[in-house]
Design a protein around this nucleic acid. Sequence first.
DNA 1: TGCGTATATATTGAAATTATGACAGTTGCT
DNA 2: AGCAACTGTCATAATTTCAATATATACGCA
Lengths: 239, 239
Amino acid sequence: MPKNAIYPRHSHPWGELVYSYSGVMEISLKDGYFLAPPQYAVWLPPNMEHQGLNRQAAVHCSLYVSLDLCAPLPKETTALEVSPMLRTMLEHLRETEGTNPNDPAHLRFMQVVVDLFAAGQQVGSFLPWSTDSLLEPILQHLQDNSADNRSLAELARLHETTERTLIRRCQRDLGIPFAEWKQRLRVLKAMPLLEAGEPVQNIASSLGYNRASSFIAMFRRMTGRTPDDYRKSVMKFKS
Amino acid sequence: MPKNAIYPRHSHPWGELVYSYSGVMEISLKDGYFLAPPQYAVWLPPNMEHQGLNRQAAVHCSLYVSLDLCAPLPKETTALEVSPMLRTMLEHLRETEGTNPNDPAHLRFMQVVVDLFAAGQQVGSFLPWSTDSLLEPILQHLQDNSADNRSLAELARLHETTERTLIRRCQRDLGIPFAEWKQRLRVLKAMPLLEAGEPVQNIASSLGYNRASSFIAMFRRMTGRTPDDYRKSVMKFKS
DNA sequence: TGCGTATATATTGAAATTATGACAGTTGCT
DNA sequence: AGCAACTGTCATAATTTCAATATATACGCA
């Protein structure tokens, strides 16, 4: 899909697993919102009204899950962690696209993919948001200046509050610590730059890291693979 | 298994897929011989008399395949190429060892593993041998001096024959070109060194390469992964 | 996360090596 | 003589390696 593509809001009587090979996927619901890079997938139970969109160009797929196979999957809409094993299988699917869809071996393969999704850990949106009057300006500021390395204490001072308060609001509204949120943001910023072929060194410094190795270590912790690995796996789907 | 382990010669009324996570596996039959590093697996149809052995220490597994699932697999004993996808699944099995073996999802997973083996390309022994009077001394010499970079023409001169004749005999007896054989030999020599933690640079030069990058490129072509990747995946099974 | 260092990998154009097919010569056999 | 299998020569195509360099990653310690 090209950038800024929007899927109309709709629903259907079967389950849907949305996975992104490259780029970030966003799903919005009547009462919820999920943002999912390639290490997450979004599970939509049958009859769940949803709307998809991707801000940057993206390569993604949806797995439609027949009603009678939905039992082992969550009853709620949720993001699921995609293990490296599962990712490999999804990439294999993409590579062998077009083989006979009725081949029994292929059907078995698909069933195992669903099994693995069902075994995945439920998680929230990769980058949660808050409209809290104190928090939102800070989050917005970081969105626009991701290289800002000022400490939480300094940010608190700037916005006339205290570090402790900000920490409490992060925990309450975002569900994750402030540092984690900033790292996730940087991962998301890094992805399109990696896809654009930017050297890891440059990306690291443009995100506020003084050393590439620090950035690499962070990216690895967050996504399970190194920046260059991520780039390589993405490139497979762009040629 | 420790080095020089030998499995007694035997047979059984079910199929067997032999796969090596690390180290090289050897299977000898009444009328055949297979040598298989981790990118190969050996398929033994039901009731096939066989004997296994591993010269170096190895971590391997056998998948027993019930008679009624053997239909899609070859009727003959053969080596099968193990795709990266399949390797990932086998490693996953190894990591999640001990989960309930009667779990339906696990059984489905196993079935897919067999499906993928069945889809694998049939190949011969990874390192074939010849007892040809001209060829054998040369092969033996390379076994003992794998860093020898003398050209085929020079070797021919030494053994009082011509380059063209050697090439013809390789094709006839080994089924693969001379250069391919030498590279496979070097891959086999490299594996235990990698497992021993030897730096890639040293291994490369001890095998006759002037530059590590040449060795890396060769190893990658032959095995589908880089030397260090190989080492890492092996290390997972040694701790 | 900063920072320095050791290691590992990819890339590229030039040089060397190997593979392949065509053809002719040799040998051994009938 | 005729046939078959093998061998040497040569030109060309395909691969591999070299060499230098740029990048990327891991690791230890502060």
